[in-house]
Design a protein around this nucleic acid. Structure first.
Length: 200
DNA sequence: CCCATGATACTCT
DNA sequence: GAGTATCATGGGG
């Protein structure tokens, strides 16, 4: 499969399924942890009511408007961080949320970051869990995925079987089937619809 | 089912 | 400016 720069620079919806099987790795002083991606979601910027970029560029989402192959890390629900791969094309605010994966290196370190003890398949299940297992935090917003220490290596071959469905937890544009996952993989997170707005 | 927890962005109550 | 609804979640009962 192509290198990272050939893979990115195209619309996020096109890129997202191709990232399944790619390996996101963080070389940290405590040791490396690497995750093989099994679940992602595409966000299409200013054209997508579900995207942080829908209402234009702000201080928070500025990274998504920047060049591809960088990490957009955001803080949500007052306690969690989630990470996206910025895809481009530049100026279009495309990004792919990395939602889940299998820890393929650094299991011990990943476990210490995710107390209490859990099954291996749960270590990076869900976008905030994945960031915790990898030790990705607010300091990694804007990080260059080619330079490291967080790097993304494309899959050798396309995922054998890919399922698609609506994105998790969105109230807006919940109908767009832009969540992609490796069919049947035990590390894929559960689908949770958005909390309905209270009637008025 | 329910809630922790705080930044963000929107509406002026 | 100040007040407030919302939130690309996870863990626990």
């Amino acid at each position: 499969m192509a290198g990272l720069t050939e893979l990115l620079g195209r619309p996020s919806v096109e890129v997202a399924p191709l990232l399944l099987g790619a390996v996101l790795r963080h070389d940290h002083p405590d040791g490396p942890v690497a995750v093989r991606l099994t679940e992602v979601e595409a966000y299409a910027g200013t054209q997508d009511p579900g995207s942080h970029g829908f209402r234009g560029r702000t201080e928070r989402n500025a990274t998504m408007f920047g060049p591809p192959a960088h990490l957009y890390v955001y803080f949500v629900y007052g306690m969690h961080h989630c990470a996206n791969v910025v895809t481009g094309p530049e100026g279009e605010c495309g990004a792919v949320l990395v939602r889940a994966g299998e820890v393929v290196e650094g299991l011990e370190l990943a476990r210490t970051r995710r107390p209490p003890a859990r099954r291996d398949a749960e270590l990076a299940k869900g976008p905030a869990s994945l960031c915790r297992a990898l030790g990705i935090g607010p300091g990694h917003d804007g990080a260059d995925l080619v330079a490291g220490p967080v790097t993304l290596t494309p899959a050798d071959r396309p995922a054998a079987q890919v399922s698609t469905g609506p994105r998790v937890g969105l109230r807006h544009a919940a109908d767009r089937p832009w969540r992609f996952w490796v069919t049947g993989d035990p590390t894929v997170s559960r689908y949770v619809p958005a909390k309905p707005r209270p009637a008025r």
